[in-house]
Design a protein around this nucleic acid. Structure first.
Lengths: 179, 179
DNA sequence: GTTCACATGTAACAGGTTACATGATTGG
DNA sequence: CCAATCATGTAACCTGTTACATGTGAAC
């Protein structure tokens, strides 16, 4: 999905600045299934403005840098709906972690153990974050989407705690057999 | 992760042609957490050869196009191990589907229903594919990685079957309330 | 006084995808 | 005979990231 549609989607939930959009995409309730950085968001906002899909007004809080608050135009709203009816592409999932575990027998025990422990810690952090996100979710849609993230993270955590030790044992055995 | 390391990883499990590498990355046991197409694989193989991390020999089956069968050199093996000790970056998960469900109230009931049904069908297909993949997995590492995929797909499927109908009901209610 | 959060934006660069070019064999 | 599978490779293009440039106010 492109950043332009993402901006439209975020602005549907309320007007926002480029800074805020990036924050929602990087840390907010969109963050677990979307990615976008300043370098793509600001140009996208400029382009959407030129196309008439969004507009901005300036808010000058004295002493602070001027904020450009963007909001959807009716045309933008229509464009968003059109995007929602577009058949979604398959989810993208990329994992360096799984790539590394694939070749677990090339990693020494201590490091493998650390790798799994770190991942568990990371996922627990994610889970906590998603749960607070879930509580603040206001629409059924966002509860569904965040709940999806919670479910997958829990499943990953379960898999790691149950299968992780087995993996370590199996690679140990494999190496002793090879000696 | 870059395609170069991916090639190294795949070749660790056995020599292969560029065509076969792409197939493993797109359909094989690497496919659920990695992506790569011809346009990135062939250049990567050329570069890795120049760097001495892999070598190829030509196999001329009469009548068929000549195959370049690549395999790891000791240097390539070392480079792979180095990559395995590199701290893995966080997993990337991108989903247009979840983006669409976020704004479920903008989609009419029939289409939303269809969207969820399609996704369930897709995930069931994925799950079946992963399960056959799991059976053919030969190393503990690949069983772990594929098992991870199975666990997440099951969790997604569960979430859809349980929360999907709730989402539809909630958006319906929301719309009737708006009238 | 220094770090953090707010705030906007650009430019170079990396990385990969899509589509094209080519061609033989096999199976339906 | 036509489609699919095997097989290699290139080039244009797109999309987005990283790093930079700049500046303020608040909190510690």
């Amino acid at each position: 999905m492109n950043v332009r549609t993402l901006c439209l989607g975020i602005l549907y939930f309320g007007e926002a600045t480029g800074y805020e959009i990036r924050k929602l995409a990087a840390e907010g309730c969109f963050s677990h299934f979307i990615e976008a950085s300043y370098g793509s968001i600001y140009p996208a906002l400029t382009k959407l403005t030129l196309e008439g899909l969004i507009v901005w007004r300036e808010e000058a809080t004295p002493g602070k840098p001027a904020r450009k608050i963007y909001s959807l135009t009716p045309e933008g709203h229509t464009a968003l709906i059109a995007a929602l009816y577009e058949p979604p592409r398959g989810d993208v999932f990329k994992s360096e972690f799984l790539f590394q575990t694939m070749a677990a027998e090339l990693i020494d025990d201590d490091h493998l153990q650390q790798l799994l422990a770190d991942r568990i810690a990371l996922l627990e952090e994610d889970l906590a974050h998603l749960c607070t996100e879930c509580e603040t979710a206001e629409s059924p849609g966002s509860r569904f989407a965040v709940g999806y993230g919670v479910a997958l993270t829990r499943a990953a955590l379960d898999h790691l705690t149950i299968e992780g030790p087995k993996l370590i044992a199996a690679t140990q055995k494999q190496r002793t057999a090879a000696e």
